[in-house]
C-alpha cells in the first residue's frame, strides 16, 4: 500500500488494467474465430507436441486405410476369378466321371478332350488374370503382353508339370506399423496342380485310357482353390477388422487433438461477455476517478 497516490499512478494503473482486459479479449476473439485454443506452440507446449504427433498418426492411419482398401480390392478380384476356376475344375470332374462309365464312343472322348483343352486354356487365363494392369497371381507385377506368368497350353514350351514362370515373391502390404497382409499367392501354388490335372485328363481322353485316374488330382486341385479362397476370406476378414480398428483409433486420435487444441466455445462466449462488462465498468470507473479532482470540485 502506498501512503500517497500520484495522478500518473492512477492513469497508469487504469491504462495497464484496460490493456490487460483488451489483450485477453483479443486472445478470446482469436480462439472464437478460429475454433482453436492452440494457435501457437507456446499456448501449450506439451499439447502442441501431442497435436503434431496425433496429426501424423491420423495421416498414417489414412495411409493404412488406403493400403487396406487396395488389398481388399485385389483379394476380392482374386476371389471372383477363383470362383471361375472352381467351376472349371467341377466341370472337369464331371467330364472325367462321364467319360469313365465305359459307354462313351471315341467321338465322345475326342469331344470331351477338346472341351477339357478349352477348360485348361480357361484355367490358364484365370491364372493370368489382371486387375488394373497388374497380375493377380504373380505378386501384382505389371501385366506385360507376351510375358504372362502361365504359359498357354497351345504355346511352344508349355510344360504341364511346370507351367508357371511368374514372380514367386508374394506381395505384402503394410496396414499398420509392422502389420503386414499378404495380397498375392504365387500362381503355381494355386493353379499348378489343377493345370497338371487338366492336362492329364485331356491326355487320357485323347489316348483312350481311363479318365477316372485323373479324379484324385482334380479333387486335390479343387482343394487348392478352396484353400486359397478360404485364405482370402480370412485375410479380407483381417482387413475388415483392421479397418474398424483404424476408424476407432482415428476417432480417438481426433478426440485427443480436440482435447488438446479445440476451443471451449461456451467458455469463451461466457468469458467474452464477462470481460466486456468488466471493460465497461472499468472505463466508467476510470472516468469517474480521473475526473474527481479538486480542480473540478472548486470549478477552477
Amino acid at each position: 500500500m502506498f501512503s500517497r497516490v500520484s495522478d500518473v499512478q492512477i492513469s497508469s494503473q487504469v491504462s495497464v488494467n484496460l490493456a490487460r482486459v483488451q489483450l485477453r479479449l483479443q486472445e478470446l476473439s482469436e480462439q472464437a474465430s478460429s475454433g482453436v485454443r492452440l494457435n501457437r506452440p507456446s499456448d501449450d507446449p506439451a499439447g502442441a507436441g501431442t497435436v503434431i504427433r496425433s496429426h501424423s498418426i491420423i495421416n498414417a492411419l489414412g495411409q493404412d486405410t488406403r493400403a487396406a482398401s487396395f488389398a481388399r480390392g485385389f483379394l476380392g478380384a482374386q476371389d471372383a476369378v477363383l470362383d471361375d476356376a472352381d467351376s472349371i475344375i467341377t466341370r472337369a470332374r464331371e467330364i472325367a466321371v462321364q467319360q469313365a462309365n465305359g459307354v462313351a464312343s471315341d467321338a465322345d472322348r475326342a469331344a470331351a478332350a477338346t472341351e477339357v483343352h478349352e477348360l485348361l486354356s480357361a484355367l490358364v487365363a484365370v491364372g493370368n488374370s489382371e486387375l488394373g494392369g497388374r497380375r493377380l497371381f504373380s505378386s501384382g507385377e505389371d501385366a506385360v503382353p507376351g510375358a504372362e506368368p502361365f504359359t498357354h497350353p497351345d504355346d511352344v514350351g508349355f510344360d504341364p508339370a511346370n507351367p508357371y514362370s511368374g514372380s514367386t515373391t508374394p506381395l505384402e502390404v503394410e496396414i499398420g506399423s509392422g502389420r503386414l497382409v499378404r495380397v498375392t499367392t504365387t500362381g503355381s501354388d494355386v493353379f499348378g496342380r489343377a493345370i497338371a490335372a487338366l492336362d492329364d485328363l485331356e491326355t487320357r481322353l485323347q489316348a483312350g485310357t481311363d479318365p477316372s485316374a485323373s479324379l484324385t488330382a482334380l479333387e486335390l486341385s479343387a482343394a487348392d482353390i478352396s484353400t486359397e479362397r478360404s485364405s482370402i476370406g480370412a485375410r479380407v476378414q483381417s482387413l475388415d477388422e483392421r479397418t474398424g480398428q483404424i476408424d476407432k483409433t482415428e476417432l480417438a486420435t481426433k478426440e485427443i487433438i480436440n482435447e488438446a487444441s479445440g476451443a471451449d466455445i461456451v467458455g469463451i462466449v461466457t468469458d467474452l461477455v464477462a470481460l466486456q462488462t468488466q471493460l465497461q465498468i472499468s472505463a466508467a470507473a476510470s472516468q469517474q476517478i480521473l475526473g474527481a479532482n479538486l480542480a473540478s470540485m472548486l470549478q477552477v
Partner: peptide
C-alpha cells in the same frame, strides 16, 4: 514459433507424412 509454424498446416510434419505415405504407395 511463427517461422516453424507446425500448427497452422503445411509444416514439416505434413511433408514428412507425405513422403512416407508416398513410400507406402510405392509399396502397393
Amino acid at each position: 514459433e511463427t517461422v516453424l509454424g507446425e500448427l497452422g498446416g503445411g509444416g514439416l510434419q505434413e511433408t514428412l507424412d507425405s513422403f512416407f505415405a508416398a513410400a507406402d504407395d510405392l509399396a502397393l
